[in-house]
């Protein structure tokens, strides 16, 4: 689609983690794909591989994906040692093949963490995130519609924008996969922050942060040692400030 150059095609070697189910032992398997257009998305390249495998009667590579526009948070590949691959500010589905060149070998693994067990091939179980949210990731308001008028509590634009920046988290788990400690603090910090920044979140703030952090620990996520890899790999640019805010909230809650 670029106006000026000729389309570039590439031939690639893929080293992909294959694992039949959660109990099986996994292994890396090599595959070749040819004539991959630079305008394909990474997952379209995976579609080409899977079509090849299906036509040969082999089991295609299982991977999570859905919206293919970077918002649902399903896709979760660890590509050449980075969550969502070499580009910045994108999910795997937004990664394009123009980031690679002809002849490359690409290593593709699932997001790895104790709290994210592999279900099959590149698909992992992120239900630990669900349980953390259930522990307190909400405001206890009935959905009756009998709430007060939306404009009755003004919220400063700054606070609303900051809450929005935290709320952009898509729950993909790239932060956990990127962290040497498999910490989920960026994820939990983002949710705690969204509510901590809004007046509606104040009433339950102390219980919320305590319960969410307790559940996070229970799930087997590691601690934060301020490396900052999570912030760099986060497709939505969630800031480390959210971890600091969560720690402050936790401190406040325990006084």
């Amino acid at each position: 689609m670029t106006n000026n150059q000729q389309l570039k095609y590439m031939n690639l070697t893929l080293k992909i983690w294959r694992q039949e189910d959660s109990k099986a032992k996994g292994r890396m398997v090599d595959y070749k794909v040819t004539e991959i257009s630079e305008h394909m998305s990474f997952l379209e390249m995976m579609d080409v591989l899977n079509e090849q495998l299906v036509n040969k009667g082999e089991d295609p590579v299982a991977f999570d994906h859905d919206c293919r526009e970077g918002i649902c948070g399903m896709c979760s590949m660890y590509i050449n040692g980075e969550a969502h691959g070499p580009d910045r500010g994108v999910t795997t589905c937004q990664l394009h093949m123009r980031m690679f060149k002809d002849g490359d070998t690409i290593t593709i693994e699932p997001f790895r963490a104790t709290a994210f067990p592999v279900i099959k091939d590149l698909v992992v179980d992120r239900s630990s995130f669900e349980r953390i949210q259930q522990a307190g990731g909400y405001i206890s308001v009935n959905t009756s519609g009998n709430t007060q008028d939306a404009n009755s509590i003004p919220i400063s634009k700054h606070a609303a924008d900051e809450a929005m920046d935290a709320a952009m988290c898509i729950g993909c788990g790239a932060c956990v996969a990127s962290c040497k400690n498999s910490s989920a603090m960026l994820f939990v910090g983002a949710k705690v922050s969204q509510y901590a920044l809004l007046p509606q979140g104040q009433v339950e703030a102390a219980d919320r942060v305590r319960n969410m952090v307790a559940q996070m620990d229970l799930e087997g996520f590691g601690n934060c040692t301020n490396t900052g890899a999570c912030e760099i790999e986060c497709p939505k640019g969630i800031s480390l400030e959210n971890i600091a805010r969560m720690n402050r909230e936790l401190m406040k809650a325990s006084i």
């Binding site: 909400y138 405001i139 308001v141 959905t143 519609g145 709430t147 007060q148 008028d149 939306a150 509590i153 003004p154 919220i155 400063s156 634009k157 609303a160 924008d161 809450a163 929005m164 709320a167 969204q194 509510y195 809004l198 509606q200 979140g201």
Partner: peptide, 13 residues
Amino acid sequence: IDQCVAQGVPFAR
């Protein structure tokens, strides 16, 4: 809109 604001949806302001 009332409901969503009460739930902590960060609409633009």
